[in-house]
Nucleic acid binder design. Structure first.
Length: 505
RNA sequence: GUCCGGUUCGUCUAGGGGUUAGGACACCGCCCUUUCACGGCGGCAACACGGGUUCAAAUCCCGUACCGGAUACCA
């Protein structure tokens, strides 16, 4: 059977890291299957049946995140709310067949504040003795039920779960899963206002979309048993299930928007200058392993190596320290991004740098034309110590603009301590002007001139070089000064060496 | 409460009867060096606990602890 999987987020927030990984695993699974069956599909369904919480903005944000990661669905996006009528029909069908019943119990007013806690509390009170089949309307005679409904009395439709038995399925990650019917209540299929509920909607849509494998978070494990009951009532063979371990916060608690803010949002990483391929690579290793020591994988390699059997059963922690700006997000993710930036083929990096420079208004069309060679060489030179795309427009700004700031720590470290430099550096500019009238301004020649100059002044090479570094780049960090001089060129080097701007700060 | 799941360095993980328990990130040190990185070399650091099975247990079984998930006319 042709593999068809879906990623089914509910649009109640942005695309967070856990959902992104679920999307990735679904995507990889579909593409892997696609290696032998080109008809395999990765689909997207927006589960927007909770009208109160779903927002268009959220849908937009999720789509943005998926687009950034490169997970385009193979068929049109399904909006679950569009299928509500079909869901209702299915519920009515089950009712007609006697597999579901009307529950006339008045709807409870939703307890406000903390719903989760309220539910937990109620469950605790009910204890282990709770009889899941004690609904007074479960065995209401058909004609009486029909009469009350006809009279306009509101009712919910609940699935009639058998008195005894158990559901079971072979989870591709967690193994055989069984649940006794006594643990499962007669779940509501249709709300008294006619609104289809999650479990019904999911099953109907998965059937309609011909989903063969459901790969989702482990928090759905209990839903799966309920859904299997619905599949059985419908006489449809359930798909294969694979539940994923969860991604937790550093304290092993839930990773949430409210508590952890932007670190969990995919768009944060896009906006922070992460490369999608790097983040994907990082995500793939969170809860999955190919069982080898390789860590850097191209998408093709991930597709080739991905399998459900490599997924772990234990939750993973997304490691970050909100108090430490250097570790605002997982350090392995940061390392991975830096690794990609400095080792990926330059041609692949260039468009990203272009986009970043454009956004920072530092891009010049010449970089695409006459100065292309210079641009490529410069990017290649400075990328070695960058962590994100943002660094090209911040730390790397002086390479692309005459308007850059001087880092106070750099001034302190490389200029203030050596007051002579205020005279020496402009002198070095004079020397450059004199020496490089006809001689090429390249590393070899520059080194000769600077070394001679240094000896004349009776100082150390580092003092001159780092003083110059501060003036020429505004920062204390960067490539070898010989390359910086050469890259910036004679003219710009001279102007910057003469500049007194940094000194007056 | 009940049901389900999990537990290997700080973090991500390999290993699934015999390993000096491996790698990566982070951290620390050394080398390289005009800075900072990169790179190279090295270091620190883990099988939750208790029983069993076995010649042999991180690995299999049972229990305990802890963590997580679920428990709704949310998804």
């Amino acid at each position: 059977m042709t593999t068809r999987v879906r990623f089914a987020p509910s649009p109640t927030g942005y695309l967070h890291i856990g959902s992104a990984r679920t999307a990735l695993f679904n995507y990889l699974f579909a593409r892997h299957a696609g290696l032998t069956d080109p008809d395999s599909k990765f689909l997207l369904r927006i589960e927007d049946t909770d009208l109160a919480r779903s927002t268009e903005e959220s849908t937009r944000s999720i789509l943005d995140g998926l687009e950034w990661l490169g997970f385009a669905p193979d068929e049109e996006i399904v909006f679950q709310s569009d299928n509500a009528e079909k869901h209702r029909e299915t519920a009515r069908k089950l009712l007609t067949e006697g597999k579901a019943y009307r529950d006339f119990t008045p709807k409870e007013a939703p307890s406000d504040a903390n719903i989760k806690d309220a539910i937990k509390e109620r469950a605790r009170e009910q204890g282990a003795d709770k009889n899941m089949r004690d609904n007074p309307f479960r065995d209401l005679p058909r004609d009486e039920s029909d009469a009350r409904a006809a009279a306009g009395e509101p009712f919910a439709i609940r699935l009639r779960v058998a008195e005894s038995g158990k559901t079971s399925f072979e989870d591709q990650v967690y193994g055989l899963q069984e649940r006794d019917y006594s643990e499962i209540e007669d779940l509501v299929l249709l709300r008294s206002d006619g609104h289809p509920l999650y479990n019904l909607a999911v099953v109907c849509d998965d059937i309609e979309m011909a989903i063969t494998h459901v790969i989702r978070g482990q928090d759905h494990l209990t839903n799966t048993h309920k859904q299997i009951l619905i599949y059985e009532a419908l006489g449809v063979t359930p798909p294969v299930f694979a539940h994923l371990p969860l991604i937790m916060a550093p304290n092993k608690g839930k990773l949430s928007k409210r508590k952890h803010g932007e670190v969990v949002s995919m768009t944060t990483y896009r906006d922070a200058g992460f490369l999608a391929e790097a983040f994907r690579n990082y995500l793939a290793l969170l809860g999955w392993s190919a069982g080898e020591e390789q860590e850097i994988y191209s998408l093709d390699e991930l597709v080739a190596k991905f399998s459900l059997s490599g997924i772990h059963r234990s939750n993973a922690i997304f490691n970050f320290s909100p108090d430490d700006p250097r570790k605002w997000t997982d350090d392995k993710a940061q390392w991975m991004n830096a690794e990609y930036i400095r080792t990926m083929p330059l041609d692949e990096l260039l468009p990203h740098v272009k986009a970043e420079l454009k956004a920072a208004k530092l891009w010049r069309e010449e970089y695409e034309e006459d100065d292309r060679a210079w641009y490529e060489r410069t990017v290649d030179l400075i990328r070695a110590r960058f962590f994100t795309l943002k660094d090209f427009s911040s730390q790397g700004r002086a390479y692309f603009s005459e308007d850059y700031d001087f880092d106070s720590a750099a001034i302190e470290k490389n200029l203030s301590k050596f007051p002579d430099l205020r005279v020496w550096l402009p002198e070095l500019a004079e020397r450059f002007e004199a020496e490089f009238g006809d001689k090429p301004f390249n590393e070899t020649n520059i080194e000769l001139v600077v070394r001679a100059f240094t000896e004349e002044k009776g100082t150390k090479l580092g003092v001159i070089m780092n003083g110059a570094r501060t003036l020429l780049t505004g920062v204390a960090v960067g490539p070898s000064m010989l390359s910086v001089f050469e890259t910036l060129g004679l003219e710009r080097s001279i102007i910057r060496l003469r500049s007194q701007l940094a000194w007056s700060q």
